[in-house]
Design a protein around this nucleic acid. Sequence first.
DNA 1: ACGCCATATAAGACTTGTCCTATATTCGGA
DNA 2: TCCGAATATAGGACAAGTCTTATATGGCGT
Lengths: 183, 183
Amino acid sequence: MSLLHAVLGFVAIQPMTGYELGKAFSTTAAHFWPADQSQLYRTLHRAEADGLVESTTVEQATRPDRRLYTLLEPGREALAAWLASPLEPDNSREPFLLRLFFAASLGTAGVIELLDQRRSAAVELLTTLDALASSAPHKPSKTTLAIQLQYATLESGRAHARAEITWLDELRAELADHKESAR
Amino acid sequence: MSLLHAVLGFVAIQPMTGYELGKAFSTTAAHFWPADQSQLYRTLHRAEADGLVESTTVEQATRPDRRLYTLLEPGREALAAWLASPLEPDNSREPFLLRLFFAASLGTAGVIELLDQRRSAAVELLTTLDALASSAPHKPSKTTLAIQLQYATLESGRAHARAEITWLDELRAELADHKESAR
DNA sequence: ACGCCATATAAGACTTGTCCTATATTCGGA
DNA sequence: TCCGAATATAGGACAAGTCTTATATGGCGT
């Protein structure tokens, strides 16, 4: 249900087309909210049908027509209501933990391989986020709250990626130790 | 698709009924893989139709009959294939970050409230996991790999909860500072 | 006595998200 | 010159998960 709110959130900042929304998601929110293109357009259709946004067709010579979406008052209210609503408890799925949980049959060496794979992915994510963070406004201190918060979501990703790497390293060491002592 | 693998993973440890699976999930895997009861049974039906597991009905006097599921060879193979398959990149959704990203209209004070709510939830999660960890076998050092890995998923949850709290505190301080200096 | 919880399984309706394909044009690279 | 990527929108099929309700009974607390 939250893609709708994200769409309202973006359109609240500035009227946008579906295509621009797609860009906005993939450049700024991809790491915590992947948005499928198809679903994005469907969500826009529904939002318009529900009177939350309004679209105007902008004709273009060479490119297909664009549909520019503008936030309407009910949309603004829905957005505000969402922001003010109580946080529901997190129940996200972690495929990696699921796998690890059942990975004993891989043996210690196999599990260590798995951890290494995961570590690589985490390092890659961290470097991507680092790059994004340093390309963004040099440390926000004299910026708007909006920019600070957007930056904060990046920081969150980095903090968790670092935590993941540390945890993986500790687990790896523990398993390697255990294997060692079993010889 | 992964609920199927989780089911195979549990049944591989020991033949189980759907009800027992539900218990197993909620007591050991709930924090990284919530399993809906209805979906669990549906997954079992499908797994049986696909020849991955086999069920035998155990009649009971007072209680409804139980259907005990046993892992078949194709199921074991599917489980092994899953464990050996390459890790797909993580693309989990983080509703809280989404909200934070768009939360500027709440104002600094409103955002701080939001952070505090989130912090409470994170602390609560951490204490739940701490309790689970200390009720589990006192520090695994001389246990099986399976137990070590199951314990590791708990540790992962704790590490991330701690990272979340630290990040929240830093962000909160930054926002409070900013607000202070704006007076 | 009444209701709620545990035991046990299951179907139905619905929402959300993913993947694939279609359409139409322009520009840049190999 | 051909192929793919970018621009722009959209539908269809499907998978996965959520929420609600149904059925049936025994035990516990108030």
